[in-house]
Amino acid sequence: MVRKIAELIRDNRRFLVAAHGKPDGDALAATLALANALKSMGKEVVAYNQDHPPVDLQFLPGCDALVTTLEAGSRFDVGFILDAGSLDRAGSHLKEHCRLLVNIDHHPYSESFGAVNYVDVRACATGVLVYRILAFMNYTFDLPVATCVYTAILSDTGSFRYSNADREAFEVAGRMIELGVDPWEISSRLYESQPEERLHLLGMALGTLEVSPCGRYASLTVTLDMYQMAGASAEHTDRFVNYPRSIEGVEVALFYRQVDENRFKVGFRSRGRVDVGAIARQLGGGGHHNAAGALVDGSIDLVKQKVSRLLTPVLAAL
Rank of each mutant, 00 (worst) to 15 (best):
A123I: 05
A37V: 03
L66E: 09
V45D: 02
N49E: 11
L60P: 04
I104L: 14
L66K: 10
L32N: 06
F141V: 09
K95N: 04
S86Y: 02
V67I: 13
V102M: 05
S40G: 05
H93I: 12
D83M: 10
Y109A: 15
G62D: 07
E111T: 11
D105Q: 07
A37Q: 07
A65N: 12
A37L: 08
L38I: 11
R122H: 15
G42V: 12
D120M: 02
L100D: 00
L100P: 01
S86F: 01
L34S: 06
K39F: 01
P53A: 15
M137Q: 03
T68D: 14
A35T: 04
Y48G: 00
G42C: 10
L101W: 12
V116M: 08
S92M: 08
S40A: 14
H97C: 05
V78L: 10
G85M: 02
A90H: 08
G73K: 13
A72M: 05
D64T: 13
N49T: 09
A37N: 06
S40C: 01
T31W: 00
M137T: 01
V119P: 01
Y118D: 08
R89F: 11
T31E: 15
G91M: 08
D105I: 04
L32I: 01
S112E: 13
D83W: 07
A65H: 11
D51R: 07
L87E: 04
A65L: 11
P54S: 14
S40L: 04
A90R: 01
N49H: 10
T31K: 10
R75Y: 03
V46K: 13
G42L: 11
C124V: 03
T31I: 05
H106P: 02
T68C: 14
D64V: 05
N117Q: 08
R89C: 10
R75M: 10
G79W: 07
H52N: 12
C98L: 01
E111Y: 02
A123M: 02
F113T: 09
Y118R: 10
M41Q: 12
V45I: 06
V102A: 05
Y48T: 01
D105L: 06
V121Y: 09
A72P: 10
I81W: 04
T68S: 15
A37M: 06
D88I: 12
L134R: 03
R132Y: 08
N36H: 04
C98T: 07
A135Q: 15
H52A: 15
L101I: 05
A123P: 05
F136S: 06
K95A: 15
G127K: 04
S112N: 13
L66R: 09
V130D: 04
D64Q: 14
D88C: 09
L38V: 13
R99E: 15
P108V: 13
P108F: 07
A135S: 15
Y48W: 09
